[in-house]
Write a protein that binds this DNA or RNA. Structure first.
Lengths: 134, 134
DNA sequence: CGAGATTTGTGCGTATGTATT
DNA sequence: AAATACATACGCACAAATCTC
């Protein structure tokens, strides 16, 4: 049960609890969080408050949700290494709606935006690639 | 007014309208979106639906919200250029809750995580820095 | 194959709090 | 002080996806 602390939103406190459970390994990667109904009872809050808490973790890329199934701690796959050509510029941002659809990018996952010296550019999902400096 | 399309959530359709207005320049960087109340009337939806639409744009880093003030199209500041030392590895991810507080990172803004050859690492807000390949 | 149970998604309503002007 | 605008929290109902029997 959550004892509401002044100055912090209820859902933020629930999110903090869940984050703690994830970081400590009590809920390891690939494993589900409790169901929304269970968390409601566990923390003594409404469903919307639970959902907002989970939404925070989703935006952080910490949790992935499948409708009708559950909310799972995201696993970190091995990253493929990129080394863009000299003179390239690399930025990072959240994907556009189109990029998320086309590249199948999950919530809370940014993209690398690699601009080549010739001006061409491409997006790479940051949960699949890393950049190596030559 | 939104004519609900089957297969797409109402709030996603509202978000698409706003995205279009932003990309077309009809609502330029630094300028506010209509207020929630106005959008409710404009699109004929509930306040929660409007808020969910705006939440999408916030998660995309497209819009920044100030309580009691309004929702503004985010401006893109000039980026400072980094060139990590040879052998460094650069990843990108959403900031942790702590990093967001410490570094003053806004919603929908990822961080570069630069791991130096000696193993030390630091986060850089991706709306303030870019990486240049040597 | 279907039926039902479980779980997350969407949409609306209401009330109150907090920040800014 | 008042008005405006966004934030939090609860409630309800139904939809959609998934799983089990």
């Amino acid at each position: 049960m959550i004892n509401p602390q002044p100055g912090a939103a209820l859902y933020a406190q629930v999110a903090a609890e869940l984050r703690k459970d994830i970081r400590s390994g009590r809920i390891p990667p690939g494993k589900p969080l409790p169901s929304e109904k269970t968390m409601q009872q566990q923390y003594g809050v409404s469903r919307e408050t639970v959902r907002k808490a989970v939404a925070l973790l989703r935006a952080e890329g910490l949790v992935a949700v499948r409708q009708g199934h559950g909310s799972y701690v995201r696993e970190q796959p091995d990253l493929e290494t990129l080394t863009p050509p000299a003179g390239s510029e690399v930025t990072a941002r959240m994907p556009t709606a189109e990029e998320r659809g086309q590249l199948g990018i999950g919530e809370g996952v940014p993209v690398f935006w690699i601009i080549h010296p010739d001006g061409s550019a491409r997006a790479y999902a940051a949960d699949q690639y890393s950049i190596r400096m030559p």
